[in-house]
Amino acid sequence: MKVLVATEKPFAAAAVNGIKAEVEGAGHQLVLLEKYTEKQQLLDAVADVEAMIVRSDKVTAEVLDAAKALKIVVRAGAGFDNVDIAYAKEKNVVVENTPGQNSNAVAELVFGLLVYAVRNFYNGKSGSELLGKKLGILAFGNVGRNVARIAKGFGMDVYAYDAFCPKDVIEAAGVKAVDSQDALFENCDVVSLHIPATPETKQSINAALVGKMKKGGILVNTARKEVINEPELLKLLEERTDLKYVSDIMPDAHEEFCKFEGRYFATPKKMGAQTAEANINAGIAAAKQINAFFADGCTKFQVNK
């Protein structure tokens, strides 16, 4: 089988070496397309491959149509909104992600952003501490659980809401489960977002919800920019001069948010999974999942069933 690694932003060399060892060790052929600059390069590269590993690369209907032999795409990371999963299903192409591999990296970044925010973006003025503050985690998946673990080290009081995770599972992790998103925002000093971008969640983080936060509330977004209702959040930040918003995803309305100096920060590029360890873990996990798929049809991490 021919396995394509298509990465406009390449994996670390150690990750590529690990992927190569896994793929070739299973008797498959590895093809690399790194730092490509034109869509046509990707369309040409997918023409005769049976499997594909991507990072944030767009796997559109056009790409899927060009990949006549494709059977599986693995997105090295948790999010998979860069892949047209519905069309892939129509084409009988399995789409998988690699949940958990980037989780600690994203969770650590949450606290990098959060410490920066509570210390007033290091502007020399007196800030506040995280000890004793209430942290709300929206979605208690792999990242959310790591956020909870780290928050306990800071001495924070940790709450979580997840419509798909039972309360007893949340509470078994030493976290207080709440009954709704509204309750999370009402009760917590900080809310950290870990929801995927789905039709149900897109623009769901709006003024009505964020406006429930206590005075001095901080919203942290290391999920997806699409979950934020940007016009409403902009208006709310105008009205609530006590609120802060920090993110590793630059909003579409970044320039408008920049007027809230001292209350807004976003990294130039998405940074959550940008660690050497996460890069290696996700890449090698993707290769192992492809090998398992071809060996015995394993689709444990399929996201387009």
Rank of each mutant, 00 (worst) to 15 (best):
K2W: 00
K2T: 11
K2A: 05
V3D: 00
V3F: 12
L4P: 05
V5S: 08
T7G: 03
K9I: 15
A12N: 01
A13R: 09
A14V: 14
A15G: 08
N17P: 11
E22L: 05
E24R: 09
G25K: 00
G27A: 05
G27H: 11
L30I: 03
V31T: 13
Y36G: 07
K39A: 15
Q40V: 00
Q41P: 03
L42C: 00
L42T: 09
L42F: 09
L43S: 09
D44P: 11
A45F: 10
E50Y: 00
E50F: 04
I53W: 07
T60R: 02
L64G: 02
A67H: 07
K68C: 02
K68S: 10
G77E: 12
I85P: 11
Y87T: 09
K91P: 05
N92E: 06
V94S: 10
V94N: 11
E96W: 05
P99T: 00
P99R: 08
Q101K: 02
S103Q: 01
L109Q: 12
G112I: 12
A117E: 10
V118K: 10
F121W: 02
G124T: 14
K125Y: 14
S128M: 04
S128C: 04
L131A: 02
F140W: 09
G141F: 12
V147P: 04
V147S: 10
A148C: 14
I150W: 01
Y159E: 09
C165G: 07
K167L: 05
V169D: 12
V175T: 12
D179T: 05
D179L: 02
S180Q: 15
A183P: 14
E186Q: 15
C188D: 07
V191W: 06
H194W: 03
I195G: 08
P196I: 08
T201S: 13
K202P: 06
Q203E: 14
I205D: 12
L209V: 13
L209K: 08
V210L: 15
V210K: 01
M213P: 11
K215C: 08
K215I: 03
G216V: 04
T222I: 06
I228N: 02
N229M: 05
E232T: 02
K235F: 01
E238D: 15
R240N: 12
I249Y: 09
I249E: 01
I249R: 01
H254F: 06
E255C: 05
E261H: 03
G262A: 10
P268N: 07
P268C: 12
K269W: 15
M271D: 14
A278T: 14
I280P: 06
G283F: 03
I284S: 04
I284V: 02
A286V: 06
A287E: 06
K288N: 04
Q289F: 07
I290E: 04
I290Y: 14
N291W: 09
F293H: 11
F293T: 11
F294C: 05
A295P: 13
A295I: 12
C298P: 09
K305C: 10
